[in-house]
Simulated assay, not measured.
Amino acid sequence: MASIKRRRQLLWTAGVALCALLAAGLALTWYSPSSEAPAEPVLIIGDGVSTPDDMAWVPPGIFQMGSDSKLAQANERPAHAVKLNGFWIDVAHVTNDEFTQFVEQTGYVTTAEKKPDWETIRVQLPPGIPAPPDDVLVPGAMVFVGTNGPVDLNDYSQWWRYVPGANWRHPQGPGSSIEGKGDHPVVQVSYEDAMAYAAWRGKRLPTEAEWEYAARGGLEQATYVWGDELMPDGKPMANYWDSKQGTFPVVSPKAGGAEGTLPARTFPPNGYGLYDMTGNAWQWVADWYGADYFGKQAAAKTPIADPQGPAQAYDPWEPGVPVDAPKRVIRGGSFLCNESYCLSYRPSARRGSDPYSPMSHVGFRLVKDAPAPAVKVVTRATDIP
Rank of each mutant, 00 (worst) to 15 (best):
L28M: 07
L10C: 07
N75L: 13
T106E: 07
L11S: 06
A20T: 12
Q64C: 04
E76Q: 14
Q101R: 07
T106R: 07
D68L: 06
S67F: 14
A39D: 13
I45F: 00
T13K: 01
F87R: 04
A39R: 10
S35P: 03
A23W: 03
K114Y: 06
Y31C: 00
W12M: 13
P60K: 12
L11K: 05
A14V: 05
S34H: 11
A27Y: 07
L84W: 04
A81R: 06
V16L: 05
I4G: 05
V49E: 13
I44M: 10
G61F: 01
V16Y: 01
A17T: 14
L18D: 03
L84E: 04
L10N: 00
W30L: 13
E76K: 10
H93A: 11
H93M: 12
T110W: 03
A39P: 03
E36F: 12
K70M: 09
E119I: 14
I121F: 01
V103G: 05
H93G: 00
G25L: 02
T100S: 15
L22K: 06
E104A: 14
K83V: 04
N96K: 06
D54C: 03
Q105I: 01
S50L: 15
K114T: 12
R77C: 06
L26Y: 03
E36H: 11
P116F: 03
L28N: 13
Y108M: 05
P78H: 10
G15L: 01
T95R: 01
V91N: 00
T110I: 12
E104K: 09
W30H: 14
F102P: 01
V82D: 08
C19N: 09
T100M: 08
F87H: 07
D97P: 00
I62T: 15
P33Y: 02
W118R: 05
T106Q: 07
P60I: 12
T29K: 08
F63I: 08
Q105R: 13
M55Y: 00
Q101M: 13
P52D: 11
L10I: 15
Q101L: 14
N96W: 01
G86Y: 07
P33K: 06
A27K: 01
L21F: 11
S67D: 10
Q9I: 15
A79M: 04
Q64L: 14
N75W: 12
V82W: 05
T110A: 09
N85H: 14
A74W: 10
G25Q: 03
A37I: 12
D97A: 13
